[in-house]
Design a protein around this nucleic acid. Sequence first.
DNA 1: AGCTATATATCGACTGGCTATATACTGGAA
DNA 2: TTCCAGTATATAGCCAGTCGATATATAGCT
Lengths: 114, 114
Amino acid sequence: MKPARVEFLQGTLEMLILRTLSTGPLHGYGIARAIGHATQQTIQVEAGSLYPALQRLELQGLLMAKWELSERNQRTRVYRLTAAGKRRLRAEVSRWESFVGAVSQVLQPRPAEE
Amino acid sequence: MKPARVEFLQGTLEMLILRTLSTGPLHGYGIARAIGHATQQTIQVEAGSLYPALQRLELQGLLMAKWELSERNQRTRVYRLTAAGKRRLRAEVSRWESFVGAVSQVLQPRPAEE
DNA sequence: AGCTATATATCGACTGGCTATATACTGGAA
DNA sequence: TTCCAGTATATAGCCAGTCGATATATAGCT
């Protein structure tokens, strides 16, 4: 029995990754853990979504990656936000907020249209 | 110059349609207009997204459709919410709200994890 | 006749998230 | 020492859903 899929995730995953990295560099697995933790597991990022997303972001120059060793002495790929990544994050957040605002205008009880 | 695509739409369109129909029966084109109007065109529902979505919803028994004539004397397919559709709408809204809450927990400035 | 708005419908392209699978290392329990 | 759970990265193939393009048709205006 696993927690219900969150099909709303589409389009927001990259924003969530960028935001998570905005507090400091982190490796992929740690990003997924951080998002799960911050949302009490409401949003669980699957490995099959995470790593392709990280590659897309790196390809766009929004992240920089390098191989390092974790505290556990395991090889990890540590990502850090670039300046372009920070700009993109700001833009995405503002687009997200405007979208959420628009949705809530639809959901809001409205008087019948004249 | 067209308004930027809303790639966050994925997953929410059906909820928006159900919500729009919850104030009364309406035809497809009217649903799209109503959503555009309620959001000041922030969300514009394209015909290529709308009609397939209506078919999916009808197939699931969430909507009932019948052909009628509009005030303009044009044939229109008028949709109305079924009881199952109303239940689904409630469920979707609650899932949406929990997702938005989760996202804002990630976006919120947080103290560094201990 | 031509244009704009209304109205429905479908196809194919594209994006992006998911499942499944593979690999590999660490540390602790049996 | 073997086994397992957790950590960690990666990719192939599938699938759902949105979008642009295209098609068709009617009404009303100029």
